[in-house]
Design a protein around this nucleic acid. Structure first.
Length: 372
RNA sequence: GCGGAAUUGGUGAAGUGGUUAACACGCUGGAUUGUGGCUCCAGUAUGCAUGGGUUCGAUCCCCAUAUUUCGCC
């Protein structure tokens, strides 16, 4: 069976939706936040801990698993779920983001993208067909189309050419997609240019994917206004009965603004990266555990948080672990930060049920950015 | 007691008779949005043991004192 999306309810005053994603590895409710496990592991967490923070689905990465250990080894082990001992749903990114983060413009051709293997210097060519073939073998529940993720600052002409190429790549990838258990999502690009986003959305939808995502946002110092516009331009063209995924977004307020605009799922490295650098999300704003003021703070990160870190450990202790570069500190903060974002999605689901999402947003923002 | 060597910020230390005393760590902040990320950025000695002297000018040269250290009795 292929992943299915079930729309349960639309909020009265916004475009927010309550839904369900049904997969062979379980069903989860949307809106949902996906922790990122690029190299077949959510950095520092065990699968049991990922379950415990109530992650409905995780994201992994085609490019990185292609280079190491190689998709054939993952396939041989019984697929990505088996390989990493995660029996929940998995979405794999296509390597499109690595076009943005690792490749130079001159490496991008109609055929695909030339990468220099960062592990051994080999020249590699990733094509739309290759990306889908790798994802088929990884056997994730949701595969992503291979796209170009252009910088938000790209010129109109560049963006237009890129959008068109990404559409051709989407079609090529769809043609070779052959895993009957795996869904395939299309990616809408176009930056903050209204006509390009609309064009990309319409044309991508014509190709008929199992779900749609909005990509190319929140990169290259893009303003929040531009990001929200990009969502607003694309959403009206996505069929209601398909899951909508905003790629790479994970600041608390962006989750809320995304949901209000009709987004169902998100992924982001932020909670785990911030954790490794000593930061924690809290209801009253982001805090930096490295700050001297937490030296003797023997209270949890958040008093009423239900995560493992907050139930058992103090800021003082976690600060000490971070200062001493002990990995347990990064692990505790990762658990907390992911749980924080997932709890936000839980709260938003409740708010959607009660048609009170705008009130939720206002209250959240007042707490998060107000005076402590 | 005698002779030698050393003394630079929180630490380990470069360094020069002349504009802002290198670097590293630590410390203090900040960044971070489909992870090439235990990463990156910034700030952090009004002073070179103390007191004199030489010099236009001394952390750098000279003298004394203190402390540390090595050797000898």
């Amino acid at each position: 069976m292929r992943v299915q999306y079930q729309l349960e309810k639309c909020e009265k005053d916004t475009k927010a939706r309550l839904g369900k994603v049904i997969t062979n590895y379980g069903t989860y409710e949307t809106p949902m936040f996906m922790p990122v496990g690029t190299q077949a592991t959510v950095k520092t967490l065990s699968p049991e801990e990922v379950k415990e923070v109530k992650a409905g689905i995780i994201l992994s990465n085609t490019y990185h698993l292609w280079l190491r250990p190689g998709e054939d080894i993952v396939a041989k082990s019984g697929g990505l779920h088996q390989f990493m001992n995660w029996n929940g749903p998995i979405l794999t990114d296509s390597g499109g983001f690595q076009v943005f983060s690792l490749a130079k413009p001159k490496d991008i051709t109609e055929e695909g993208v030339c990468f220099k293997n960062h592990l051994n210097g080999d020249r590699l060519l990733l094509t739309p067909e290759k990306s889908i073939e790798i994802q088929n073998k990884l056997d994730s529940d949701i595969a992503m189309s291979f796209d170009e993720c252009p910088p938000a600052s790209a010129s109109y002409d560049y963006m237009k050419a890129s959008v068109e190429r990404t559409l051709r790549w989407a079609e090529r990838g769809k043609k070779v997609h052959s895993n009957p258990r795996q869904a395939l999502f299309g990616i809408i690009q176009g930056g903050a240019y209204q006509d390009l986003r609309e064009y990309s959305a319409k044309e991508t939808v014509k190709l008929d994917f199992d779900g749609y995502s909005i990509g190319g946002v929140a990169n290259d110092h893009e303003s929040k206004e531009d990001m929200y516009k990009a969502i607003d331009y694309a959403i009206p063209f996505i069929p209601e009965d398909k899951c909508r995924y905003l790629m790479g977004v994970g600041e608390p307020e962006d989750l809320i603004e995304g949901v209000i605009r009709g987004i169902d799922i998100f992924d982001c490295v932020l909670p785990t990266r911030l954790a490794r650098h000593g930061h924690a999300f809290t209801k009253y704003g982001k805090i930096n555990l490295k700050n001297a003021k937490y030296k003797e703070d023997f209270t949890p990160i958040e008093e009423h948080c239900d995560c493992y870190a907050c139930k058992h450990y103090t800021k003082s202790y976690i600060k000490h672990l971070i200062n001493a570069s002990e990995t347990f500190g990064a692990r505790l903060l990762s658990i907390h930060n992911i749980r924080f974002l997932i709890r936000m999605t839980e709260e938003m689901r409740e708010a959607i049920k009660k048609d009170s999402l705008l009130e939720y947003r206002d209250q959240f923002m007042e707490n998060y950015y107000g005076k402590n």
